[in-house]
Computed example of a mutant assay.
Amino acid sequence: MKPTRQRPRPAARPASRPTSRPAAPTRTPAKKQDGQRVTLPRALSKLGYCSRTQAEDLIRNGHVSVGGKTITDTEAWIDLATAKISVDGQPVTAEKFVYLMLNKPRGLVTTRNDPQGRPTVYDCLTQYDNAHLSPVGRLDKASEGLLLFSNDTQFANALLDPKTHVAKTYHVQIDQLPDAATLEALRKGVTHDGEFLSARRVELLREGDKNAWLEIELDEGKNRQIRRMLESLDISTLRLVRVAIGDLMLGELEKGAVRALTDAELAGLKRQSGMGR
Rank of each mutant, 00 (worst) to 15 (best):
P3A: 15
P3S: 11
P3Q: 14
Q6M: 05
R7D: 07
P8K: 08
P10W: 08
P10F: 13
A11E: 07
P14V: 12
R17H: 11
P18N: 06
A23N: 10
A23E: 13
A24W: 12
R27G: 07
T28M: 10
D34R: 13
P41M: 08
A43Q: 00
A43S: 05
L44G: 02
G48E: 05
C50T: 03
A55Q: 07
E56V: 00
E56D: 05
D57N: 06
N61G: 09
G62T: 04
G62P: 04
S65M: 08
S65K: 07
T72F: 01
D73N: 12
D73H: 01
E75I: 07
A76C: 11
W77V: 15
D79L: 14
A83C: 10
V87L: 01
D88H: 03
Q90W: 00
P91H: 04
T93G: 06
A94D: 09
K96W: 11
F97Y: 09
F97D: 01
V98C: 03
T110I: 07
R112K: 14
P115Q: 08
Q116E: 15
Q116G: 15
P119F: 02
P119C: 08
P119I: 05
V121H: 00
D123M: 03
C124A: 14
C124K: 06
L125M: 12
Y128G: 01
N130W: 10
L133W: 08
L133C: 06
P135M: 04
P135L: 02
K141M: 15
S143E: 09
E144I: 14
E144A: 15
G145I: 11
L146S: 11
L148G: 01
N151I: 13
T153C: 06
T153K: 01
A156I: 11
A158D: 00
L159P: 05
K163N: 07
V166K: 02
T169Q: 03
Y170W: 13
H171N: 13
I174E: 07
D175M: 02
D179Y: 12
A180S: 10
T182W: 03
L183P: 00
E184A: 12
E184D: 12
K188W: 07
T191I: 13
T191D: 05
D193E: 12
G194M: 03
F196V: 01
A199H: 03
E207S: 13
N211G: 06
N211I: 01
W213A: 09
E215I: 02
E217T: 14
E217L: 05
L218D: 07
D219F: 06
R224K: 15
Q225H: 10
I226H: 02
R227N: 10
R228D: 14
R228Y: 15
L233D: 13
D234M: 06
S236E: 08
L238T: 00
L238S: 04
L240K: 03
R242K: 06
V243P: 05
A244C: 05
I245L: 09
G246C: 05
G246H: 01
G246E: 03
E254H: 09
G256Y: 00
A257Q: 12
R259F: 02
A260P: 00
T262M: 14
Q272Y: 04
